[in-house]
Each structure stands twice: as structure tokens, then as C-alpha cells.
Design a protein around this nucleic acid. Structure first.
Lengths: 124, 124, 124, 124
DNA sequence: GTGGTCTAGACCACC
DNA sequence: GTGGTCTAGACCACG
């Protein structure tokens, strides 16, 4: 289920994009599954159809979905997005780590933090 | 030196704010150092004075700078910003870590990455 | 209704900010109420839109409002601002009290004064 | 002794004015005492002579000092300033009290706070 | 139409 | 000269 946070500074289409990407990454939506139609998802989320369209387009561009005219949108194979997504995440993580270091956090502080994260069951 | 990236989606004043905050955190700008005047920095960066003003105001609000009318802007003592800055960084790092986990990176992958960061001498 | 006092030394945006904060604190503007648009309020108060924008931004930063681009500004839930607002008020009250003491007011004088305030029905 | 806080948003002349007024109110400077000369105090505080001049003028206007040409500035009799000062303080205190009430502080909360203030020995 | 950013130019208080 | 406020008008992304 996707819940839109109107207080979030990020635009709605980006929230939708990210939520769907998360669902695909976690395997909730498996490859070749048919996505709900643009109009239907728009109604479900109570947003403008343009917003959903934009989210789908973005997901297609990033390799998470592929579209078939007249059929709908489908989840891509894992290979299509995994490499790029992880590459981006590594870069982000590295930068966050550098900032933490600059801020005075010790090696052990950070190690402890990631250990906590990896021991959690539920992550969002 | 500060370089503004006009392709960056983030507003200019935020880029300036972050860059200056980084310089202060790293100790390049030490406490009670006089910052360049609003107008001068505006000329140097080829942006409007109001934009620089906004960046300075934000830095003041976050405790990185203090301003004296008729005198200029000066770098604050470390105590004024360190706690908040580290707190924010921890949150950012944690989120990046969660994303990495969702993306399939193992505990060892991340541990290796932070080890690399902490063994580097020069960081940007 | 908001009236701007041009003789007041405080900047306009601060007067507007404070007045609106008061209205929210007193419950005149209840949570999730839509605020007038930036431009409309600017016209109503006969000030520049940037000035109103600044007031709204400040209220957002202090947790009184939340903004949604394309939709408008809305009053936040009580929890978002109550703690901070009371904390600030306590500090102010304490200082006023210290000044009164220095000025020769006795403990009973002050106690009588606050009793009066708490027995009034209407307060501004 | 007067210490100027350059981080304080209030202008320097106002800080000087207030500090001197405090000293007079508390009786540290008793009536008809000769104040240090404008130039001397300017040197002592490391500020511009204009700044001290402005502070003295303001104190004279509020009845705390009286000046004798060719002689210097002297502390006034108590009656000259006490009434006005207390009147202003009562108004300030009342407003702070109203705000506190609006913010949800109970009668007992406020009573407890003023009791604390009046039991302190040292106040600034 | 909405909030948000940016510019250009003006004026003010302060030191 | 400095920071700070205010105005007027422009442009953009969002929904």
C-alpha cells in the first residue's frame, strides 16, 4: 500500500516513484507482474493521472518497468535495474560516510550504527 | 572555493549554505574568522546579494555563523553547531544504510566501504 | 484580522509571523485549515508577496504551518509547535519576572498581577 | 563591569544603555555619582565614542542621568526614573503572562516560576 | 493558481 | 562600509 505524505517536500510523483521502486527492489512486485493501469492507480491514490504517468515513465527510464502499448506496464527483470540502483546507493552511502567522518564520528561509531541497521527486521 | 552547479536541482542559496557549512565543519574556516561580506561574495559567485544573504541567514540560524551589523559575519564557536550537525549526519547515514540494505548490499559490503573511507587521508 | 504597525521597529514579516502564530496558538486557526495564498494575503495586507512568503516560511520552520506546492499552506497539528512555543514563552516570562524583581516589584505584586490575568476571560 | 556581546542582535548602544540602567536600578551606582566621561568609557569598552554618547543621551532622556555641561554626567535621584521603569516592566510582564496563558500554562505553573525567580539570590 | 527561487535596485540602522 | 528589510517583477515546478 502506498501512502502519500503531503507534508513531504518532495513532489508527489517522486514519492510514488520511490515507493514503487522499493516494492520492486524488495521483491513484493516480481518480474513480469502487470502494474495497475495509470488511471486506476490515480484513483486509488486520489492523485492526478498525470502524476502517475510521470512516475511510471520515470520507473521505465530507470529500468524498473517496461511498457507494452495497448497492454500496460510490467515489472522488469532484476538485471535491468539492480546494477544501477546499487551503484547509486553505494555512492550515496560513501558520501554520507565521509560527512560523518568529517563531523567527528569515529570508525566504531559508524560500524555500530550499520550493525544496528542490519539487525533490524523491518526497514522502510 | 565555491562552485555553483546550475544543473543541480537544489536552489543556489542551499548549495552555498552547504558548501560553507562543509568548510566550517572541516575547520578550513576557523571560529571568529570574518566571512567575506554579503555583497563581495555575491560578486565573487556571480549571484545576487539577496541569495548570499539568505545563505548567511540560514548558516546563522543553524549556529554556524553569527552576524554583527556594521561589522560583518563571523564563524561561530564549535560548540554552537557540532551537536546539531552530527545529529543530522547520523540520520542521513542511517537512511543511506537502510537503502543499501534494501538494495541487496551485505553487512560485509558496507563494512568494507566505511573502512575504505576511514583509511583515506584526503576527503571531500 | 492583521494590522501592520509601520511605526514598529520590528520588520513587517516578523509582525505578520507573530500575529499568525498567535492566531494558531489561540486556536482561531485550527489544524489543517488552508491559509490564504501568499499572493492574496500580500494584497490584503498591502505588502509585497515576498514579505508574506518569508512569514509563511518562518512559520513552517517553527512547525506552525506546512506547505504543499501547487496546493497552498496549511495549519499544522498542535503537537508540532506546542512544545517549542511553550518553551520559548517560559523563557520570556522568566526574564520579564527577573526584570520586575530588579525593578523593585515584590513577590506579592507579581502574584497579584498574574492572578488578574488568569481571571480575565478575553485576552489579546 | 560591562561586557559587550557582539553576537547579540541588539545594537551596542542599547546594550550599554541597558547595562547602565540595570546598575542604577540595582543601586550599584547611587544618585549623584559622577559617571565616567564619554571618551573614557568608550576606551574602556573598546567602542566608538558616538556609541557611548548615544547611550548616555538615552539614559538622560529616560531620567536615569542628568548632564552638567563642562562637568560630566551624573546619576539621577530615584524618583526620576523609578515610576516609568516599573510601569514599563509591569506592561511587559503582563503580556508575557497572557502569552503563557494562551500557550496552556496553568496558574500554578506560572506561580511556581515566579517563586523560583524570587528565591534566587543572583539575577542578571 | 500555488509555493518557491532569483534578480535588481532601493532604503535603513549601525559603527 | 556592513548586515538587514522591502519592493517589483520575473521564472520555474507542481498538480
Amino acid at each position: 500500500m502506498i501512502i502519500i505524505d503531503y507534508r513531504d517536500k518532495r513532489p508527489i510523483y517522486e514519492q510514488v516513484t520511490d515507493k514503487l521502486a522499493q516494492l520492486i527492489i524488495k521483491g513484493v512486485l516480481s518480474p513480469n507482474t502487470k502494474m495497475p493501469s495509470v488511471r486506476q492507480l490515480a484513483i486509488d491514490l486520489s492523485v492526478n493521472a498525470n502524476t502517475v504517468q510521470r512516475a511510471y515513465s520515470q520507473l521505465e527510464q530507470n529500468g524498473y518497468l517496461y511498457s507494452v502499448v495497448g497492454k500496460g506496464n510490467f515489472v522488469s527483470e532484476v538485471n535491468d535495474w539492480k546494477n544501477q540502483a546499487t551503484k547509486e546507493n553505494i555512492a550515496t552511502l560513501r558520501q554520507a560516510c565521509i560527512n560523518a567522518k568529517n563531523c567527528g564520528l569515529t570508525y566504531d561509531d559508524v560500524k555500530k550504527l550499520i550493525k544496528e541497521v542490519y539487525e533490524e527486521k523491518q526497514t522502510s
